[in-house]
C-alpha cells in the first residue's frame, strides 16, 4: 500500500543554510532598480519632449540604447570571468566555480538584453527607416553576438561533468569574444548605414532633457542588469548544490518514506 501522506523531502543543513536567493543588499538593489524603471517610464513617456523629426518614436531611445549597453557590459563580464576561470580557476579553493557562475549569469542576462535590444530596435526601425531590419554593420554584429552567446548557453546546458562543461564554456566564451572584433571588422567593411553612436563625450547629438532622461534610464537598466545577474548567480549556485547533494537527499527521502510506511 502506498502511504496516504507524502513524506517531506529532508533538506541537508548545508543546503538550508544557503537556500536564500536574496540578501539585504540585493533587496535594496532590486527596489532601487524597480523604482528607477518606473521613473524611467514616467520620464520617457511624459517628461521627455517629442523629437522634431521622429516624433514620439524617439521614446524608444530610452529603452533601446540602455539595454544594448547592459548587454555589452554583461558579455564583457562573461568574457573576463571566463578568462579568470581558465587562468586562476585551478588554484582557487572553489576550483573557479564562483567565476564560472558569474560568467553563466552574465551571459544569460546579456542574451536577454540583446534580445530586447533587437526587438525594440526592429520596432523603432519600422517607424524611422520603414523596415524592421537593415543589413548594416551594427545590427548584423549584434545579431551574430546574440546567436554566438545562445550557443554558449547551449554548451552550458550539456549533460556532462560540471568541470568539463565549465572549461568548454569558458573557452567558447573567449573564442566568441576574440571573434567579435573580426565580425565587427568584416561587417563594417561590408556595409554601414547605422547612425553614429548616440552619446559621445566630445559632441552629443542628444541634448537637454532627452540627454538627461537617457542617462537616467541607463542607470536604471544597469541596476536591473546587476540585480538580475546577482539572482541568476544564486540560482545557479543552488542548482549546483542540488546536483551535488541530490543523491544524498534522495537516499534520506527514501529512508524517511520507509519510516512512514
Amino acid at each position: 500500500m502506498v502511504s496516504a501522506t507524502k513524506p517531506e523531502m529532508p533538506v541537508s543543513p548545508r543546503t538550508s543554510a544557503r537556500m536564500a536567493t536574496s540578501s539585504v543588499g540585493t533587496t535594496v538593489l532590486g527596489w532601487l532598480a524597480f523604482v528607477s524603471l518606473v521613473a524611467t517610464a514616467v520620464l520617457g513617456l511624459v517628461v521627455s519632449p517629442r523629437d522634431v523629426v521622429t516624433g514620439d518614436a524617439v521614446r524608444f531611445l530610452y529603452l533601446h540604447v540602455p539595454v544594448i549597453w547592459v548587454a555589452y557590459g554583461a558579455f564583457i563580464s562573461c568574457a573576463i570571468a571566463s578568462a579568470l576561470f581558465l587562468w586562476k580557476g585551478k588554484s582557487r579553493a572553489d576550483r573557479g566555480r564562483h567565476l564560472d557562475r558569474v560568467a553563466g549569469a552574465s551571459a544569460e542576462v546579456g542574451v536577454v538584453f540583446t534580445a530586447l535590444a533587437l526587438i525594440t530596435g526592429a520596432m523603432w526601425g519600422r517607424i524611422t527607416w520603414g523596415v524592421y531590419w537593415q543589413w548594416d554593420a551594427r545590427l548584423t554584429m549584434t545579431a551574430m553576438m546574440f546567436v554566438s552567446f545562445l550557443g554558449y548557453l547551449a554548451l552550458r546546458r550539456l549533460p556532462t561533468e560540471p568541470s568539463v562543461r565549465s572549461k568548454r564554456a569558458a573557452i567558447a566564451a573567449l573564442v566568441s569574444s576574440v571573434n567579435l572584433p573580426l565580425v565587427h571588422f568584416s561587417v563594417d567593411w561590408w556595409r554601414t548605414l547605422h547612425q553614429e553612436a548616440s552619446l559621445s563625450v566630445d559632441e552629443a547629438e542628444i541634448t537637454g532633457n532627452m540627454y538627461s532622461v537617457l542617462l537616467f534610464s541607463s542607470v536604471a537598466f544597469v541596476l536591473t542588469g546587476i540585480w538580475l545577474v546577482a539572482h541568476r548567480y544564486r540560482v545557479i549556485r543552488l542548482e549546483e548544490i542540488r546536483d551535488d547533494e541530490g543523491l544524498e537527499l534522495a537516499i534520506a527521502a527514501r529512508r524517511a518514506e520507509a519510516g512512514v510506511d
Binding site: V147, Y152, I171, A172
Partner: peptide, 27 residues
C-alpha cells in the same frame, strides 16, 4: 577543429556543433 574538440564526447554533437560553429564562421 576547436569547436569539434569542444563537442567531443557529447551526445547532442550533431545539433550543437552547427549552433556553435556557424555564427563564429560568419565573417
Amino acid at each position: 577543429c576547436i569547436y569539434g574538440a569542444m563537442s567531443l564526447g557529447v551526445r547532442v554533437r550533431e545539433t550543437l556543433l552547427p549552433l556553435l560553429l556557424i555564427p563564429v564562421v560568419a565573417p
